[in-house]
């Protein structure tokens, strides 16, 4: 069961990477696209145990790094930290829809800020982008909207294992 959930999570992350680099590479509203990979990592980390969750965050981020041109390891680091933050806080935000939505916004915001800050430290000059503030603000909002579709889908694919475990 555990292996199956991890396998399906990896599949979901791979699909998210594919959509991020193709569909959301072209569809940008107000010049900004949702960060589907980050959202998928948050959604999956709600359902997995801590170790597979952070590993999945790292793998998804590394895939994005390998397919882009930013420093290798930047998104791997950020998504590892986001997966860890999700695992540590999921019991607090998995109580109702509002709390979950708020968590998506805050975790996405944290992720975007980390990409900008760590990216700048490693020579990406993200702060020079005049749209940096718009991106920081819009990505969490887009992720919140997309979470309405992604979260139930991930629950359907990966399963509600964690909830059942808690009940047991």
């Amino acid at each position: 069961m555990r292996t199956r959930a991890i396998g399906l999570s990896l599949l979901a992350a791979a699909l998210a990477v594919l959509l991020q680099t193709t569909l959301f590479g072209q569809v940008r509203i107000f010049g900004v696209a949702p960060d589907l990979v980050m959202l998928t990592v948050i959604a999956v980390a709600r359902r997995l145990e801590a170790e597979p969750a952070v590993l999945l965050g790292f793998t998804s981020g590394l895939a994005m790094d390998l397919l882009g041109s930013s420093p290798l390891g930047l998104r791997a680091l950020v998504l590892t930290l986001i997966a860890y933050a999700t695992v540590r806080t999921r019991d607090r935000f998995d109580i109702n829809v509002v709390a979950t939505g708020l968590a998506v916004v805050l975790l996405s915001l944290l992720g975007v800020v980390l990409v900008v800050v760590i990216g700048t430290l490693f020579g990406e000059a993200s702060f020079q982008d005049p749209n940096v503030l718009r991106k920081i603000l819009l990505i969490p909002i887009y992720n919140l909207v997309l979470a309405v579709v992604v979260f139930p889908l991930v629950t359907l694919i990966v399963g509600g294992r964690r909830r059942r475990e808690l009940l047991l």
Binding site: F58, L62, A76
Partner: peptide, 25 residues
């Protein structure tokens, strides 16, 4: 696990920047 992955990420970034897009990365 978290510490290992974080350290690995930093190492990758450092290697990648030092290799200027070439090398193993």
């Amino acid at each position: 696990m978290l510490v290992v992955l974080v350290v690995l990420s930093f190492l990758l970034m450092t290697f990648d920047i030092r290799a200027s897009g070439g090398g193993v990365t």
